[in-house]
Design a protein around this nucleic acid. Structure first.
Lengths: 249, 249
DNA sequence: CGAGCTCTTGAGATTAATCAATAACCGTGG
DNA sequence: CCACGGTTATTGATTAATCTCAAGAGCTCG
């Protein structure tokens, strides 16, 4: 992966980009891609590094090429809630807004494919196909945020943990284009604290519930960041969600 | 308001529409408005009526003209979470999706300005200005959803109630184009149960915290649905939010 | 091999949920 | 106009879940 990453970062070639057909550029024709490419640059961050602070000026937008980042919001007294998880192909930044609304932190090593904001905004005007893709992605994110509202508002601590693992397992499975089922191993690119911030829990509760799921055989921990799920279906049951997948189109 | 409503519903004239410059049609020129108008129709619902059930086919999209609706999601065992509040000018439905992802319920008497989905989707392709407005509105909704994540994940029951009242007061103030400050009276078009579903609480807790805010003089109740806020600033303090408003552009 | 993290586990405090009873409101019809 | 039934809201007592505070264990990396 770091080797890949270096390759991409140096060559800057869209045709070998792992998110070429899933990111905001997904539906681009060659000419549109060319226009995007002319304003494109890469940035890399190490796990833990801050990409932007809420309130700071932000002159670029971009796509996650690899790694993972979290959007975070805070109350004055320091209580913290993660409000978004950016995985490969997800879009970062808001066209038309110069100031970041959320703090963005790399939760694992991260590569971003960036576009300067102004040229990108012009491109959005001129190229409905790109604007359309961005609308589609934003609607998907809104749906994901709404699922998260249900999780935060109504699920128990155990269900929250299981739900997070389900989401990560599904994304991991999607990467290798296989349905999530049976025995799955996932990498957890999050500390217990980051998980807690995402789930609206304390890190102690996260730890306790991870232990409980382990004790009950729903998950097996290999070290602290590698999780084996012996039966994905069982995990879905623990998550409290409707067992039969999502909504058809 | 019902008189207005009837007028609008019968005349179907965009130029006297109360959300003409705030809804998805906001930036439309006369010709675009004409195209929209040709596929437009109105629907009205009484408080409590269901607009669509999650999973049902939905062949229209539209804007809230007056009243209020809630988007609701459920777990299998019945636990319910409201995941969106649609106020006047808000957009309902998702272009490109034929099946409703959420149950939509009128929480007060409601008037929708609807467009058949297919023609609207064509219009989105042909008219970047409309697509652009929809993108902007969707991004705003996403921001609102993320604020709500912070509320559900990290705020106390009392702060949740105060936050909801702040939001309603701000929207009410925006309608009459005045900043929210000083003494404000708002109409609560929600039952205690709907408030609970929105805030991730039980209705008993909502009731208790409303009583507590009343006891502490933060709010005055006139009947059950009318709330007087003697000092908007004090209410904002109770909400736990950063006191200094929102993010500048 | 020890310093500094991150994570786990325990005990007790706190918040909100649950279960239960009563009160207030609303529309209807006598 | 008022009594009645049904709904919605309030309040109380108890329970359950999660948080808080605290101590110790396990990794990781110089």
């Amino acid at each position: 992966m770091p080797a890949d990453a270096a390759l991409i970062a140096s060559q800057q070639a869209c045709d070998i980009c792992p998110v070429r057909y899933r990111a905001v550029c997904a539906h681009c024709e060659a000419d549109e891609l060319g226009e995007l490419e002319s304003t494109k640059f890469y940035r890399t961050y190490q796990a833990g590094q801050v990409v932007v602070w809420a309130g700071d000026r932000m002159d670029f937008v971009g796509s996650v090429v690899s790694g993972m980042a979290g959007l975070t919001q805070q109350l004055e007294d320091g209580r913290t809630q993660m409000v978004g998880l950016l995985l490969p192909s997800d879009f970062l930044g808001r066209p038309g807004r110069a100031v970041a609304a959320y703090t963005v932190t790399a939760t694992s090593d991260l590569i971003l494919c960036c576009f300067r904001r102004k040229p990108f905004e012009s491109l959005l005007m001129a190229r409905p196909r790109i604007a359309g893709r961005l609308l589609e992605m934003t609607l998907d994110e809104l749906d994901a945020a709404r699922d998260w509202l249900l999780l935060l508002g109504r699920k128990s601590a155990r269900e929250k943990i299981a739900s997070l693992l389900v989401i990560l397992a599904r994304r991991e499975a999607a990467l290798i284009k296989r349905p999530a089922e049976g025995r799955i191993t996932i990498e957890l690119p999050l500390t217990r604290e980051a998980m807690a911030d995402y789930l609206g829990l304390t890190l102690e509760t996260v730890s306790r519930q991870m232990s409980a799921l382990k004790r009950d055989g729903v998950i097996v921990l290999e070290g602290k960041r590698r999780v084996v799920i012996p039966s994905f279906q069982d995990l879905v049951v623990e998550s409290g969600d409707d067992s039969d997948g999502g909504i058809p189109n």
